[in-house]
């Protein structure tokens, strides 16, 4: 399925935000995520089901620098 992550179309097999975060190896701390313009707390990542063309914004501590 295609989703939009930070304005970029991205292919993912993840079904939930939680799995997507795992796929992207997002760190445990220093991350904020919004889906379709709404901030989603980490506790709700597992219950957030992804759908085609979903607009995801990820604010994360940059890796490596």
């Amino acid at each position: 399925m295609k989703v939009i992550i930070n304005n970029k179309t991205t292919e993912t097999s993840a079904k939930t935000l939680f799995v997507l975060a795992e796929e992207m190896e997002l760190p445990q701390k220093g991350v904020a995520v919004a889906v379709d313009n709404k901030m989603i707390p980490r506790a709700e990542w597992e219950s957030t089901v992804l759908s085609e063309n979903m607009n995801i914004v990820i604010i994360k501590a940059a890796c490596g620098g």
């Binding site: 760190p27 445990q28 701390k29 220093g30 991350v31 904020a32 604010i59 994360k60 501590a61 940059a62 890796c63 620098g65």
Partner: peptide, 15 residues
Amino acid sequence: VYEARHILGEGFIIG
């Protein structure tokens, strides 16, 4: 930013 990142490390959001 680089100085803040050096102090805080990777586990913090910097805007």
